[in-house]
């Protein structure tokens, strides 16, 4: 169907200096900044508005939330490593080494999976069982909404990476540069997901 040639899908536009996919990805990320920005701003508003300690509505300290910084910290490291493997995947493809790039992509995928499994099995499930449900307090409302949305982003990233490991990989044979570009765009998104977590971790686990 769309074999029709659109310009600048692979090569950068002579004036703007980027190819369309990358520009599109950045635009999408800009909207993501606003999405998480709104959530952070809600956090600040609710935090500032919370009453002082004796009130039942006071903001819980991290001793009261029973969120473990060890688990949170572990997941932080997992995401940071996955960012490195992601960018290495792109660098390897850029240097023409498909099988190395693929290995790094697999690593990224598995690290993302680790993140999700840890999140669910060590945090969500025990917390929910222990009565720390979203409705418990404004803090837990925020905790579940923020980490939940972030988790969905991680899963979204896994779907994309999975696609480029599976059916999407055929593109490498047809047009290696195009494939590399798409991995670059995936990487931009993936680093953004990491970047959001860098802010979420201290705000939710350490304050």
């Amino acid at each position: 169907m769309s074999t029709q040639t659109l310009p600048y899908t692979v090569h950068p536009h002579p004036v703007t200096g980027i190819y369309s996919g990358k520009f599109g990805t950045w635009l999408f990320l800009a909207s993501e900044v606003m999405l998480f920005g709104a959530l952070f701003s809600s956090y600040v508003l609710l935090r500032v508005g919370a009453p002082e300690a004796p009130s039942p509505l006071h903001w819980p300290s991290h001793e009261e939330t029973h969120l473990s910084w060890r688990i949170g910290g572990f997941n932080t490291l997992v995401l940071i490593v996955s960012s490195v493997t992601m960018v290495m995947a792109w660098a390897s493809l850029k240097m023409g080494d498909f099988s190395k790039g693929r290995r790094y992509l697999w690593l990224t995928f598995l690290l993302a999976l680790t993140f999700i499994v840890v999140k669910l099995s060590l945090e969500y499930v025990p917390k929910l069982r222990g009565g720390y449900v979203p409705a418990k307090s404004t803090f837990f409302s925020l905790y579940y909404t923020l980490t939940g949305l972030h988790g969905l982003h991680v899963i979204g990233g896994m779907v994309v990476i999975g696609y480029f490991l599976g059916p999407g990989a055929a593109l490498w044979k047809r047009d290696p540069e195009y494939y590399t570009n798409r991995i670059e765009c995936t990487g931009l998104y993936w680093h953004f997901v990491d970047l959001v977590w860098i802010f979420l971790f201290p705000v939710l686990y350490l304050m």
Binding site: A30, G37, L39, P134, A135, F140
Partner: peptide, 25 residues
């Protein structure tokens, strides 16, 4: 559309949580 809609999406998700999960945003 790009920069103004996402905050409403966030707010929509929060209101959905208020309705479905009993939170109190």
């Amino acid at each position: 559309l790009l920069l103004a809609f996402p905050p409403l999406e966030a707010a929509g998700v929060m209101q959905l949580m208020d309705r479905v999960a009993g939170t109190s945003f």
